[in-house]
Nucleic acid binder design. Structure first.
Lengths: 276, 276
DNA sequence: GAGTGGTCTAGACCACACT
DNA sequence: GTGTGGTCTAGACCACTCC
């Protein structure tokens, strides 16, 4: 009943053949196909996970949509439902998929996240939930990537990027000054008008208009002193301490698609984090 | 073959009886035994997880030690090995246990974490690993908890706490100024001498000498200006921006056992974080 | 070789959601 | 009722570690 799941021949060659006939067998056998000392084999459920990731990456299922049921996927990939389940479990753990009992499994989206600001870790000091923030667009322009931006976004030096500067306010009080850099190749139509008329999370706009879904972000945080410009925009004294959050956001396949530098006022708010 | 796993009678009453005869059945049925609208039932593997957590909390297995094998636990709890496995899977996910193929499952410890500073998220800007830091103990004294400290540690106002102040240095360069507050009831023997002669992670000392294992921490991060005292100790100008990290560390059972306020120099380092 | 955790399968039943 | 994901079980075999 059980054949060797780790060998690329036998029935499991069908895994790739069924789903994506272009997948070469060595691509199914580990994350580092050509590397010398890479793990030669990977568990079946990891291979399934890789195929599901591909489908997400290639847009076979869009954010918010249901993916096929576990039974269906098991049939498609010619494995047991339990194996599909384990692959989906990991992807749900990583917030790529959302399981809903009785309804199905859905591609994660920034649309109906429940929580309004999934990536914003700022919270009022009292312990309350973050209230709805107002936005003020300050700038949106095309430019050539500076070396630093190009490196962060893995672009060629001089590639076009779109730079956005905006302010987030709590009531009348400025709270966050954001600078964003986005690859122009992906966000071609993005301009001030589009941004102005959009009401909702920015990452939802990126999904809806540009098919770019942010999956994960790395942040580097430091304390800096407000420059004259920062101070004027955020309503603090020059030299006042501000929290600088440099964020690199990634889409499927660990591809960086946004660089963002936020300056947070932390006199009445804090950045919350959990360490495990 | 399958009886109702969610009913407290039948064979699964043996779960508690076997392991801890004092466990009342309602305690097995959810995290909120007495709450009105609490989930009345919990899956069998969650109940097993609760029992394993109890064993950790009561010190049946010490950090670094192996817990019984899955087969053994399955026999003890009268459930299948797969159910034990799912409980352990979750606990490994939460860094409470560490699985080692071929060897067994071990209670997580701060001793051999591989990574030296499990809870310290500071990294050099270059991208290198954090080098070994030097420590300089500045103070260690008993005091009555201030209202703020008492609240954070869930103590009665005026309970005794131990306050520690220390500096972390990279070579000769001060990097972190830490203030710690610990419940004196738990850390009775802790004094300057013990701290001075200890070389290794502080949380390892707590495990070894006080049987307090830190499991999780919450941090609140903000930018602050260096006071005169901060500035002198950290070697920066008065008013220079510093990263203030307020950490509350918890042991098993979400019990807060440490409050810590760190002031980080972030001119050549940053606090790294991942957002998922 | 014996014992451990890791993977895979298959089948049963439960809880939930929609119709 | 039907279909979905969620839980539980049992057994087989694989990979790793240590003796």
């Amino acid at each position: 009943m059980q054949d060797n799941a780790f060998m690329p021949d036998s029935k499991h060659a069908l895994v790739a053949a069924e789903a994506h006939s272009q997948v070469r067998s060595d691509e199914r056998r580990g994350a580092l196909p050509a590397a010398a000392e890479a793990p030669a084999f990977s568990p079946l459920y990891q291979q399934i996970k890789g195929l599901l990731l591909r489908s997400l990456q290639f847009g076979e299922w869009q954010p918010g949509q249901a993916i096929p049921s576990e039974t269906e996927l098991a049939a498609r990939f010619k494995v047991s439902q339990g194996t599909v389940r384990k692959a989906i479990d990991e992807m749900a753990q990583e917030n790529l998929l959302v399981r809903r009992q009785g309804k199905g499994t859905f591609v994660a989206t920034h649309a109906e996240e429940g929580t309004r600001y999934r990536f914003l870790r700022l919270a009022p000091d009292g312990g309350a939930r973050m209230p709805r923030l107002e936005r003020r667009l300050l700038e949106c322009r095309r430019m050539r990537a500076t070396p630093g931006v190009a490196r962060a976004l893995e672009l060629a030096g001089g590639d076009a990027v779109i730079e956005v500067r905006r302010l987030l306010l709590e009531g009348a009080q400025p709270l966050v000054l954001d600078d964003l850099w986005l690859p122009a190749a992906l966000f071609a139509r993005l301009d001030a008008e589009l941004l102005a008329q959009w009401h909702g999370p920015l990452y939802r706009l990126f999904e809806a208009e540009f098919s770019v879904h942010m999956v994960r972000a790395e942040e580097k945080i430091r304390a800096v002193a407000a420059t004259q410009e920062d101070a004027a925009l955020l309503g603090v004294a020059v030299g006042a301490p501000l929290l600088q959050v440099e964020r690199r956001s990634f889409t499927y396949g660990a591809r960086p698609v946004e660089l963002r530098r936020g300056l947070y006022r932390t006199d009445a708010h804090h950045y919350r984090n959990e360490v495990i």
